[in-house]
Amino acid sequence: MSSTISESQLEARLLAEARARRQAFWHSLLALDARLAAELHRLPPDEWADVAALAAYPQLHTHLKALRQVDAALCQWQLGLYGLCSDCEAELTPEQLWQDPCRQRCAPCEEKYRKAQHGAWEL
């Protein structure tokens, strides 16, 4: 991707990613529990990941994580903070955001976050 990625292109890419992640979640939930899927359909999509009844389906864990990521990115967009590392506030490049529209951290902060999440110790 060229370094001339526009803000409107990034917004369109983020919205497309949100649609794709929500659709994947929806189809997986529908196959597991059509009644719960119908109930969720009445809620705004940004509230889906917060529904407690979904905890009964561990097979949806990956989808729920993806929904939370896209919801966070959309919230950052609305607040004018999209493209800033959520830890150190360094600017992410348009190319990084194009590759992963839900990216939350710069490379150094992402490494620290992963180590903290996985309990990795440096010797």
Rank of each mutant, 00 (worst) to 15 (best):
E7R: 11
E7I: 09
E7W: 08
E7N: 10
S8E: 08
S8K: 13
Q9M: 05
Q9S: 07
L10M: 07
L10I: 08
L10K: 02
L10P: 10
E11L: 05
E11M: 08
A12W: 01
A12E: 04
A12C: 00
R13F: 03
L14P: 08
L15Q: 02
L15D: 05
A16C: 02
A16N: 06
A16L: 09
A16D: 10
E17A: 11
E17S: 14
E17M: 07
A18G: 00
A18Y: 00
R19F: 04
R19N: 11
A20F: 02
R21D: 02
R21T: 04
R21C: 03
R21H: 04
R22W: 14
Q23L: 04
Q23I: 10
Q23V: 11
A24N: 07
A24L: 12
A24G: 06
A24I: 11
A24T: 09
F25H: 02
F25C: 03
F25V: 03
W26S: 14
W26G: 08
W26F: 06
W26L: 06
W26N: 07
H27T: 15
H27N: 14
H27M: 14
S28M: 13
S28V: 11
L29W: 05
L29D: 09
L29F: 12
L30H: 15
L30P: 09
L30Q: 15
A31H: 03
A31C: 09
L32R: 15
D33M: 07
D33P: 10
L36W: 05
L36R: 03
A37T: 08
A37Y: 08
A37D: 10
A37I: 13
A38G: 09
A38M: 08
H41K: 13
H41Y: 09
H41E: 13
R42V: 03
R42T: 04
R42K: 03
L43R: 02
P44R: 01
P45M: 02
D46S: 00
D46N: 00
E47V: 03
E47R: 01
E47T: 01
E47D: 09
E47Q: 03
E47Y: 03
E47N: 04
W48E: 00
W48G: 00
W48P: 01
A49V: 01
A49H: 02
V51L: 01
V51P: 01
A52D: 08
A53D: 15
A55D: 12
A56F: 13
Y57A: 14
Y57L: 15
Y57E: 13
P58N: 05
P58G: 07
P58M: 04
Q59G: 12
L60F: 05
L60C: 08
L60K: 14
L60G: 11
H61K: 15
H61S: 15
H61E: 15
T62F: 13
T62N: 15
H63N: 11
L64K: 11
K65M: 14
K65S: 14
A66M: 06
A66T: 09
A66R: 12
L67Y: 01
L67R: 01
L67W: 04
R68N: 11
Q69I: 09
V70L: 06
V70H: 02
A72R: 06
A73S: 10
L74S: 00
C75V: 02
Q76I: 07
W77A: 00
W77H: 01
